[in-house]
Design a protein around this nucleic acid. Structure first.
Length: 232
DNA sequence: TGTATTTGCGGCCACCCTAG
DNA sequence: CTAGGGTGGCCGCAAATACA
């Protein structure tokens, strides 16, 4: 994990060859790939120079998730695969800011646009970096969308703003975990310092209130089947 | 094992809605 | 009222499957 964080390609290769388990998660619920993405999202230089090498060495294939008692396989070639992992990767660093900046907001196409701009074309084609395309993926996989290939990955909480479907589960170390049990809602608003694997809280009254409201809403969506009142 | 048919899927594009 | 962009339909390719 440290090796991926630092973008040390040769070391990652060595570890993967030694059968290091890339599915293990750290204390905030991230696996090696998601740590790579978090790093890439916050550091354009890392995205441009280190990302491609480490990405390749991790030898990703696919991930399996569980939604509505159905198993859904996401192949690594699918944009959905990358976008779900990006949402996870941006959970602590970016989501907190968005929640505070825009009342009742969450991830929007602009967040992906901004972050993907620094990704090399070998990982994301130019076409896939366009706003229209990103929007269409978000929309297509929104839980209420009537689309043949809707994978129910996202929940829209207002126009153009999405979060990971609160009823989505991922398999971690052989166990099915709800995504918001794996990612710690209580750590929203904390930030990572330097290369450390831990997060620190930056206290701010207004921010705390917005974050509390957001956390409550997500918990409610996860635990009930009521249609979301705030969505018009 | 080669060919036909089906199904899955990515991406293009136009319409329409929303915010300003 | 307008521009920007979210939304959803659709087209055509490619992989999978069925069948001889």
């Amino acid at each position: 994990m440290i090796a991926t964080r630092l973008g040390h390609e040769a070391l990652v290769e060595k570890l993967v060859d030694m059968d290091a388990n890339t599915g293990l998660v750290n204390n905030v619920g991230f696996n090696a790939f998601q740590i790579v993405l978090e790093q890439a999202c916050g550091d354009p230089k890392y995205a441009a120079k280190k990302l491609a090498g480490v990405y390749q060495q991790l030898k990703l294939e696919s991930m399996v998730i569980q939604v509505n008692e159905r198993l859904v396989k996401l192949d690594k070639r699918l944009m959905e695969f990358l976008m779900l992992n990006l949402m996870i990767a941006m959970f602590y660093t970016r989501l907190s800011h968005i929640v505070v900046q825009f009342r009742g907001g969450a991830f929007s196409s602009g967040d992906f646009l901004e972050v993907l701009a620094h990704f090399p074309d070998s990982i994301v084609s130019e076409r896939r970096k366009k706003r229209a395309y990103i929007s269409s993926i978000l929309s297509k996989n929104e839980i209420d969308r009537d689309d043949r290939y809707n994978r129910n990955l996202f929940r829209r909480i207002k126009l153009g703003h999405y979060i990971i479907n609160p009823k989505l589960s991922v398999q971690v170390e052989g166990e099915w975990r709800n995504i918001y049990d794996l990612l710690s809602l209580d750590l929203l608003g904390f930030r990572r310092v330097d290369q450390a694997e831990s997060y620190f809280f930056d206290p701010n009254k207004r921010m705390s209130m917005q974050l509390e409201a957001f956390k409550e809403r997500v918990k409610c969506l996860r635990d009930t089947n009521e249609p979301d009142q705030a969505l018009t």
